[in-house]
Write a protein that binds this DNA or RNA. Structure first.
Lengths: 148, 148
DNA sequence: CAGTATCCCTCAAGATACTG
DNA sequence: CAGTATCTTGAGGGATACTG
């Protein structure tokens, strides 16, 4: 089954999301965007990705509605890549990945980058599980892919 | 920069998580596991993935500590692949991907699979944002990748 | 049924050089 | 600086056949 056939067929939102953003670079580009990066060169330097690859990914992400291109804010004639509302809605995905990584992929005393509240400047531990209607839901209480 | 070099260098939890699970199949395998799938053949049939690919992915996921292999519960001599606690902790990631997909990758009347509360049998809309210390946090209030 | 082994092939990724 | 064009390489994925 090809990717395209799959995207036509699947009724699973997880699968569709995976097709769009679950690749090596897309999520890191989005992460950097949340950190304020907007320019091609800054993405490129920060990620260490080949220019051609970055150009392709950004194009895909624009087509997917995650980024939009707009004139540079500093008056130069270049472009900026900024998250659309749809792209900003990926925040919980990035946070969930971050929380999981912090918890399982680092040693107890190993340093890692942290989430910071831009209002207070304080680090946000952010270790609460996803909440449903004000209560916490554990994996055992739900089935992820039940078709109804 | 190779993948391995990257895994040694990065202090970003998002990047480490991406290395482990952000590929085309891994997250779908985890999704199916949350839906109760445990056997090789069931994963294979459900995903439509090549056997060899599935075997590789499952091996990687076991090595990463996301799945563990255990004797089949039905008395046959085969194995079952079940999520470890670390693997179950990917629940928020899968849910976040699901929510985003539901919201942006489906038409208003297009059917999709849903999350179901196994206790009540009711579908869970699950559209609340990630909570921090009991309050809701919006993307604008935080930086994802600030190193502190 | 549950994998493993093999072959083939496509595409993603990197490097480099070039253009506006 | 911000891309585009081109080439090469290698890993990932599919199909098939084989084994316990």
């Amino acid at each position: 089954m090809t990717k395209h056939q799959m995207s036509q067929a699947t009724t699973c939102p997880v699968a569709r999301s995976v097709e769009v953003i679950a690749d090596r670079w897309a999520l890191l580009i989005v992460r950097d965007a949340f950190d304020g990066v907007r320019r091609f060169g800054d993405f490129q330097q920060g990620l260490g990705v080949a220019r051609s690859v970055l150009a392709n990914r950004l194009k895909s992400l624009v087509e997917a509605g995650i980024f939009q291109v707009q004139p540079a804010s500093d008056g130069t004639s270049y472009q900026e890549y900024v998250l659309t509302p749809q792209g900003q809605s990926l925040f919980p995905v990035v946070v969930a990945l971050r929380q999981w990584g912090e918890r399982y992929l680092f040693g107890p005393h190993e340093a890692h980058s942290q989430l910071v509240d831009t209002a207070t400047g304080q680090p946000l531990p952010l270790m609460q599980p996803v909440a449903v209607d004000g209560r916490t839901i554990a994996p055992e209480q739900a089935r992820v892919n039940k078709v109804v």
